[in-house]
C-alpha cells in the first residue's frame, strides 16, 4: 500500500522546493513490495520534487541527507527512529530543517 504523509522543508530549505514549506504526498509502492522506508521518500523527493538538478546537493550528500539538515520523524530526531530505514506510516510528518542559515 502506498503511504500518504506530510513533508515539511524548513529553515530556508523551501527555496529549492518552489518556496513551498508544506507538502502532502503519497509515496508509491516499491516494485518488490518491500515496506516503504524513509530512503524511498528521499529518492522520491530527489526524483520528483527538486526542479533544478543543481539543487540536489543542497539536500543530499553521499547518498543521504546532508549534514546540517535536521530530519525529524513526527518531531523525533530520525537518529532515534532508524534514520533512512524507518518504515513510513500513513499520516507521518517528516520535517527537514536546515540549520545552516544565518543567525
Amino acid at each position: 500500500m502506498p503511504v500518504s504523509i506530510k513533508v515539511e522543508f524548513l529553515g530556508g530549505l523551501d527555496v529549492i522546493f518552489e518556496s513551498q514549506r508544506y507538502h502532502k504526498l503519497t509515496v508509491p509502492n516499491n516494485e518488490d513490495e518491500s515496506p516503504i522506508i524513509l530512503k524511498n521518500l528521499i529518492d522520491y523527493i530527489v526524483n520528483n520534487m527538486i526542479s533544478d538538478p543543481k539543487d540536489v546537493e543542497v539536500f543530499i550528500e553521499n547518498d543521504t541527507i546532508r549534514p546540517g539538515i535536521l530530519t525529524l520523524i513526527n518531531d523525533t530526531d530520525w537518529e532515534l527512529e532508524g534514520e533512512d530505514q524507518y518504515e513510513l506510516e500513513n499520516g507521518d510528518v517528516i520535517s527537514f530543517t536546515s540549520t545552516l542559515h544565518g543567525g
Binding site: G11, G12, S95, T97, T99, H101, G102, G103
Partner: peptide, 25 residues
Amino acid sequence: YQKEIVLYAHYKKLDYFSTECSYAP
C-alpha cells in the same frame, strides 16, 4: 549547539527568519 537551538525554536514554534543574505557569504 546549533542543532539544539534549531530544535528548540522548532518545538517551541518560535517565529524566526531563515533566508541567506542576498550577498555571497
